[in-house]
Each structure stands twice: as C-alpha cells, then as structure tokens.
Amino acid sequence: TVKFKYKGEEKQVDISKIKKVWRVGKMISFTYDEGGGKTGRGAVSEKDAPKELLQ
C-alpha cells in the first residue's frame, strides 16, 4: 500500500493498482486504477516511497 496526499487529502492505494511510475526530481509520481475506468494520480517523496514502487 502506498500512502500519499493529493490536493490536501490523505489517500492510499494498493501497489497492485499502480499502472505507471516515474521520477520527478526527489518525488516519485504515479498513476493508478481508481476503478470505474478512472485513472488517479499521486506522488510521494523518494524517502517515503515503498521499495516496490522504486523497482
């Protein structure tokens, strides 16, 4: 599970739902399947990112 803040809201998403991951400076950005055909997005700092996300 990845915990992150998006627009001031605390969120979390299961690693299995993450589609795409990329690095922006010291942040790790990602998109994930929100269900219902929607794609969500989020970002975590490199130090807070789970190891599975960095692979």
Results as ranks from 00 to 15, higher is better:
T1H: 10
T1D: 06
T1I: 14
T1R: 07
V2I: 15
V2Q: 01
V2T: 02
V2P: 01
V2E: 00
V2Y: 02
V2D: 01
K3V: 12
K3Y: 12
K3Q: 07
K3M: 07
K3G: 03
K3F: 10
K3W: 08
K3A: 06
F4Y: 05
F4Q: 01
F4V: 04
K5F: 15
K5Q: 12
K5C: 15
K5A: 07
Y6D: 10
K7T: 02
K7I: 03
K7Q: 10
G8N: 07
G8C: 05
G8W: 03
E9R: 11
E9I: 14
E9C: 08
E9Q: 13
E9S: 07
E10K: 06
E10T: 10
E10A: 10
K11D: 02
K11E: 02
K11N: 04
K11Q: 06
K11I: 13
K11T: 06
Q12H: 09
Q12W: 12
Q12I: 15
Q12K: 09
V13Q: 01
V13A: 04
V13C: 08
D14A: 13
D14K: 08
I15P: 02
I15Q: 03
I15L: 13
I15M: 12
S16G: 09
K17N: 10
K17R: 12
I18C: 02
I18V: 08
I18A: 01
K19Y: 11
K19Q: 09
K19C: 12
K19A: 05
K20I: 08
K20D: 09
K20E: 13
K20N: 10
K20V: 09
K20W: 08
K20S: 11
V21R: 03
V21D: 01
V21C: 08
V21E: 01
V21M: 07
V21A: 11
W22P: 01
W22V: 08
W22R: 07
W22D: 03
R23V: 08
R23K: 12
R23Y: 10
R23F: 09
R23D: 02
V24L: 10
V24I: 12
G25E: 03
G25S: 03
G25H: 05
G25V: 02
G25A: 04
G25I: 02
G25F: 04
K26Q: 13
K26R: 12
K26H: 14
M27C: 14
M27Y: 15
M27G: 03
M27P: 00
I28K: 00
I28E: 00
I28Q: 00
S29L: 15
S29V: 15
S29N: 15
S29G: 13
S29M: 15
S29T: 14
F30W: 01
T31W: 10
T31Y: 10
T31E: 11
T31A: 05
T31K: 04
T31H: 04
T31Q: 05
T31V: 09
Y32V: 02
D33C: 05
D33R: 03
D33T: 06
E34C: 10
E34N: 08
E34S: 08
E34P: 03
G35H: 05
G36S: 10
G36V: 07
G36D: 13
G37C: 06
G37Q: 05
K38T: 10
K38R: 12
K38C: 07
K38Y: 06
T39W: 09
T39C: 11
G40M: 10
G40R: 06
G40Y: 06
R41P: 02
R41Q: 09
R41K: 08
R41M: 14
G42N: 02
G42R: 01
G42F: 04
G42A: 07
G42H: 02
A43F: 15
V44P: 00
V44H: 01
V44K: 01
V44A: 02
V44G: 00
V44C: 06
S45A: 14
S45Q: 12
S45D: 14
E46Q: 09
E46F: 14
E46S: 11
E46M: 14
E46V: 15
K47R: 13
K47M: 11
D48M: 10
D48E: 12
D48C: 09
D48Y: 13
A49R: 01
A49T: 03
A49N: 01
A49I: 04
A49D: 01
A49G: 02
A49C: 12
P50G: 04
P50R: 03
K51D: 11
K51E: 12
E52S: 10
E52T: 08
E52K: 08
E52R: 07
L53D: 00
L53I: 05
L53E: 00
L54F: 06
L54Y: 06
L54H: 05
L54D: 02
L54C: 07
L54R: 09
L54E: 03
Q55S: 12
Q55P: 06
Q55C: 12
Q55F: 11
Q55T: 12
